[in-house]
Amino acid sequence: MSEVVIIGLGQLGRVFAGGLLRAGRTVVPLNRGDDMATLAQAHPAPELVLVAVAENDLHGVLAALPVAWKPRVALIQNELLPRDWQTHGYLDPTVISVWFEKKKGIDAKPLIASPVAGPGAALLCRALASIDLPCREVAPGDSLLFELVRKNVYILTTNIAGLKTGGTVSQLWAQHEAFARQVANEVMDIQDALTSVRHDRDKLIAGMLEAFDGDPDHGCTGRSAPARLARAIGHADEFGLDVPVLRALAG
């Protein structure tokens, strides 16, 4: 059977592992502390190498990935943009914008269908479909970029605005729409700068609201919200952006 290496067996990694097993693949795990070069020698030509580590660990893994694995890489991180893989010389990775939530002891819950692009897109969609998680293939390039930015706008706006408002995403929009739009606009300023593209803001807001409708009781904040705010302000500093609302939230 075809092999898929999964780097990182956290909550999301285990969801994908289950789907890939159901899709008839042999899953080869790489856990923290395992030697990547040794595993690559034993499994030099997997069908896919799914990098399922946290955002903060992504760049270290991409820099260390064995050469034979690089054309087979698939990425699933939040806050992901093309510059993250292009910095390390990756040209056409498989990339999925994950729109399901997985918490310990609770089944994965989809908000909307997860878009995926790249060489391994069909396999990942089959894997997710096998465990009843909706997925759709999109074209690399502009279509994928929009989907990545859309997810970033959703997660950054809800997490950052939620530091002030708390509550759920439906409450955020029903009770604090003006404030949420202020945060979203500053987040979109940052996304435009990071991608060197002026994105359609109405379309991004509509995409965010579609996800709100997919899970209206989704909580705005989590433990990662302060770190997301700090990263956003760091990106704003990189490009000389004011983002006064974000800076006020940071105190």
Rank of each mutant, 00 (worst) to 15 (best):
I205A: 10
D202A: 12
A232P: 06
L229Y: 03
Q191L: 14
I233Q: 00
P226E: 02
D200R: 06
L204H: 02
R181Y: 10
G214A: 05
G219V: 14
D215F: 13
N185R: 10
R223A: 15
D192W: 05
S224M: 10
A227I: 12
D200I: 07
G214V: 08
H199Y: 02
A184T: 04
R201V: 06
D202G: 13
A180L: 09
A206W: 04
P216M: 09
S196N: 15
A225L: 01
A184R: 04
A193P: 03
G214I: 07
D200W: 00
A211V: 15
R181F: 10
V197T: 15
R198S: 15
Q191M: 15
K203L: 14
D202V: 01
G207M: 10
T195R: 02
F212Y: 12
T195L: 08
L204A: 05
N185S: 13
A230K: 14
I233W: 04
T221E: 00
L204K: 04
A232E: 05
F179M: 06
G207A: 09
R231P: 00
G207D: 04
I190P: 07
T221W: 02
A225T: 09
Q182C: 10
R231D: 12
A227H: 11
D189C: 09
A227V: 14
D213L: 14
I205M: 15
L194R: 11
A193D: 04
L204V: 00
D189R: 02
T195N: 11
L229P: 03
L229D: 03
L194K: 13
G222N: 15
I233L: 14
D189K: 03
P216K: 00
D202E: 14
S196K: 13
R228M: 08
D200G: 02
S196D: 14
L194C: 08
L194M: 13
L194D: 12
A206P: 08
R181I: 13
A193F: 03
H199N: 02
C220F: 04
D200Q: 05
A184F: 06
R228L: 03
N185C: 11
T221N: 06
R223E: 15
A232Y: 06
P216Y: 07
G219N: 14
V197R: 15
H218G: 10
Q191P: 05
R201Q: 11
P226W: 01
E186D: 01
E186N: 03
E210S: 10
H199Q: 00
R198A: 15
D202T: 07
R228D: 09
V197H: 15
D215P: 07
D192V: 07
E210F: 10
G222M: 02
I190H: 04
Q182P: 05
A206N: 08
G214Q: 06
A227G: 11
R223T: 15
T195V: 06
R223G: 00
E186K: 09
C220K: 00
R181H: 12
G214T: 00
S224W: 13
R228F: 08
T221C: 11
I233N: 06
L209S: 08
P226G: 04
R223M: 11
